Computed example of a mutant assay.
Amino acid sequence: MVGDRDRADDLVQDTLERAWGKLHLWRQGSDIRAWMFTIMHNLFINHIRQNPNPHAFVTLDEEALDIPVRATQDEGLEMRDLMSAISRLPGEFKEVVLLVGLEQMRYEEVAQVLGIPIGTVMSRLSRGREKLRVLMAGNAAPTLRRVK
């Protein structure tokens, strides 16, 4: 979601710190993974609200200079295009696509984490995937399908 390894590490650390401090609020028997993702999502949203331009600062450290090289150029270009397309998705689609596609969460878990109905999760996932297809194909705008 954050698009940067260092910021992702910071988000995970902040999530663990918040969860540890609020452990008394976790309901025994409930899904701790969903609870942790909810905390992470809320921290991410709070950070976006506080810092509307997250790409203002770039860190330079040794890890940033050790960029892994893909075996083939095509795979690297496809991954770059996919990351670019994901970054251009609207936030509500990006969250659902990443939670389902990358985190392998079930629709029920995503609905619980984001606080939305399951039908909304499925709708956003479908629309997000369609927008990704369009972006990856290089079309500027999706075409409307005629339904009979």
Results as ranks from 00 to 15, higher is better:
Gly91Glu: 15
Glu95Asp: 11
Leu98Cys: 14
Ala64Lys: 00
Glu75Leu: 10
Ile86Arg: 06
Leu89Trp: 04
Val96Pro: 02
Ala64Leu: 05
Glu103Ala: 14
Lys94Met: 15
Leu98Ala: 12
Met83Arg: 05
Met105Gly: 05
Leu65Tyr: 05
Gln104Met: 00
Glu95Ala: 06
Leu82Cys: 04
Leu99Gly: 00
Glu103Asn: 11
Glu63Asn: 09
Leu102Asp: 10
Leu99His: 03
Val69Cys: 08
Leu98Arg: 06
Val100Ala: 11
Asp66Leu: 12
Ala64Ser: 13
Glu92Asn: 08
Met105Ala: 12
Gln73Glu: 13
Glu78Ala: 15
Gln104Arg: 00
Leu99Phe: 09
Gly76Cys: 08
Arg88Phe: 08
Leu65Glu: 04
Arg88Met: 14
Met105Asn: 03
Ile67Val: 14
Leu98Pro: 01
Leu102Glu: 12
Val97Trp: 02
Ile86Gly: 09
Phe93Cys: 01
Gln104Tyr: 01
Asp66Glu: 12
Gln73Ile: 07
Val97Tyr: 09
Met79Ala: 12
Ser84Leu: 10
Glu95Tyr: 07
Val96Ser: 03
Leu65Arg: 00
Val96His: 01
Pro90Thr: 03
Ala85Val: 01
Met105Gln: 03
Glu103His: 11
Ile67Leu: 07
Val96Gly: 05
Leu98Phe: 11
Leu102Arg: 11
Gln73Ser: 13
Leu65Asp: 07
Glu78Asn: 12
Met79Phe: 08
Glu63Asp: 14
Gly91Thr: 14
Asp66Asn: 11
Arg88Asp: 15
Leu99Tyr: 05
Leu65Gln: 06
Glu103Phe: 14
Leu102Ile: 07
Asp81Lys: 07
Arg70Asn: 13
Arg80Ser: 07
Leu102His: 12
Ala71Lys: 08
Pro68Ser: 02
Val96Glu: 03
Ala85Ile: 07
Leu99Arg: 01
Gln104Asp: 12
Pro68Asn: 01
Glu95Ile: 00
Glu75Gln: 10
Phe93Asp: 04
Phe93Lys: 03
Asp81His: 11
Val69Gln: 10
Glu92Gly: 00
Gly76Leu: 14
Glu95Lys: 00
Gln73Asn: 11
Met105Tyr: 04
Glu78Val: 15
Ser87Glu: 15
Ala71Leu: 09
Gly101Ser: 13
Pro68Ala: 06
Ser87Leu: 12
Ala71Arg: 06
Leu77Cys: 07
Gly91Leu: 15
Pro68Gly: 02
Leu102Val: 11
Glu92Trp: 03
Pro90Tyr: 02
Met105Arg: 10
Gln73Thr: 10
Glu92Leu: 08
Val96Asn: 07
Glu92Thr: 04
Gly76Asp: 14
Val96Gln: 01
Leu102Ser: 13
Lys94Gly: 08
Glu75Pro: 06
Leu98Trp: 06
Val100Thr: 09
Leu89Asn: 01
Val100Gln: 02
Ala71Trp: 09
Glu95His: 11
Leu98Gln: 09
Arg70Pro: 11
Ser84Pro: 01
Gln73Asp: 10
Gln104Gly: 02
Arg80Val: 01
Glu63Ile: 09
Glu63Arg: 02
Gln73Leu: 14
Gly101His: 07
Leu99Glu: 00
Pro90Asp: 12
Met83Thr: 13
Val97Pro: 05
Val96Phe: 04
Lys94Gln: 14
Ser87Cys: 13
Glu92Tyr: 08
Ile67Lys: 05
Arg88Glu: 15
Ala85His: 07
Met83Phe: 13
Glu92Cys: 09
Ser87His: 13
